[in-house]
Nucleic acid binder design. Structure first.
Lengths: 244, 244
DNA sequence: CGGAATGTTGATTATATTCAACTGTTGTGG
DNA sequence: CCACAACAGTTGAATATAATCAACATTCCG
């Protein structure tokens, strides 16, 4: 642990600050900077800043300019599209060591989604300029970006596939299956939902009411049991089968 | 016009063949190879082949390995996801000088969609090896890919946004508006549908029956008139307003 | 403790699908 | 060139799925 003496320089009241050490450590573990020389990473970190953001606050709204590529240190964010009627479709959750905004920043396009904190969070903000320069000068960085953007593209296509060819129950079953983690008991699995049920509903493209009914449906079939954000998978095989 | 003497070397019965000249010309105009030295393009062309494909035939099925990045010379393809019940969701149409498969090929992933010819077509097939080599050795190529993949990603996100927050009429209105071309008359616009109505329906994510009803709806409101694949936009302002 | 946020439930409604029958169009081989 | 089969499009009725509306219950936090 760093002492207060080493802690970051002036932190603005708005939650922004500088802390090149911390940023360099954060960036070094990102796929974005894989195999990039440490001095390049340090240089980018020197141009970047940290930002704290409170649960419920928006880092950026759809259509605004993103301040830079976002690299999560801790907490969690949601990326969401607004829907008619005030509700939303969550496109992705963002947790520690994940990044967002590469495409928007490098193509100089406005932010395609709302970016909102689900919990008090801290993240690094890497402005466009040093990334553009790195893209010009370091082929490894360009190749990292090709991998990242390619994977994002294919993931998104997978999302479309799921929403287009599966109904609510199937999507929920698949989602739960994808989050299943081993339990003490070898027969059952546990899922800890990464957000509240309303937000998970938005992630699955249904309303909270529908989500509630879907969970009850699976509970009635004795496939799962629900307790707050903890879901016990009682019959993973049948659940997976349901997912298609 | 080339004479028979200059025409491509042995063309296999399956529609595949070699024609480095033609391929080099085709590739030179692609964003993929922008600012790439002609000799590199020629080298890639030397490793590539042409392929003819008949209307209705599949170039590749979802889950299979793509033979390479596809570069359209003439004709048109659809990229589609299969849905339960045998119908499909068309993700993209592909016309002359457009490319497909960069992400799948470079990340060595299976083809994420069915690729089917809507008309007799010819295309270039660029196998993975020379592209991988170019990616390793030519930063410009890597940067081209970053632009292309980034744009594809943002386009796809736009698609999701449209399907998620607009109903059928709105999507159709927006789609027609996006295809509108000037007419003789300055008050009206014309749209030539790039495929038959069933396929356009699949592009918009509705059934052909719904598509038919939507078109009639817009016709009844005197916003358009329909004649085969030709659609006359009679009131573009109101149509665009409808699109939201 | 109390108010705000989150979640549940039932009744009703909107939107588009499915099914079925029918019409129109196109392209092919006799 | 026509007959005809395959394909494409239209229309109506019944149905499925999930959204919306409204009321209430529960949980979370300050």
């Amino acid at each position: 642990m760093q002492t207060v003496l080493l802690m970051s320089a002036p932190v603005a009241g708005n939650g922004g600050g500088r802390d090149p050490r911390l940023l360099e450590g954060l960036f070094s573990n990102l796929p974005l900077f894989r195999d990039i020389p440490q001095r390049s990473i340090a240089h980018v970190a020197g141009q970047s800043r940290t930002q704290r953001i409170k649960r419920g606050a928006a880092l950026c709204r759809k259509g605004e300019r993103l301040p830079g590529v976002i690299a999560m240190a801790y907490g969690s964010l949601k990326l969401a599209l607004r829907r008619t009627g005030g509700d939303e479709k969550v496109v992705r959750f963002l947790g520690p060591n994940e990044t967002f905004g590469e495409a928007s920043i490098l193509l100089d396009r406005p932010c395609p989604v709302d970016v909102v904190a689900l919990a008090d969070s801290m993240l690094g903000v890497i402005p466009a300029a040093p990334l553009q320069r790195l893209l010009e000068n370091d082929c490894t960085f360009a190749r990292n970006l090709v991998r990242i953007l390619g994977a994002r593209f294919l993931d998104l296509l997978g999302e479309i596939e799921a929403t287009v060819q599966q109904n609510g129950v199937q999507r929920l079953a698949h989602y739960l299956d994808s989050l299943a983690e081993p339990n003490g008991d070898p027969d059952t699995w546990i899922v800890h939902l990464p957000a509240n049920k309303t937000t998970i509903a938005a992630r699955l493209g249904v309303t909270k009411e529908t989500m509630s009914r879907l969970l009850r449906e699976l509970t009635n079939r004795e496939l799962i049991s629900v307790s707050r954000r903890e879901i016990l998978i009682r019959d993973r095989a049948r659940l997976a089968q349901l997912a298609g």
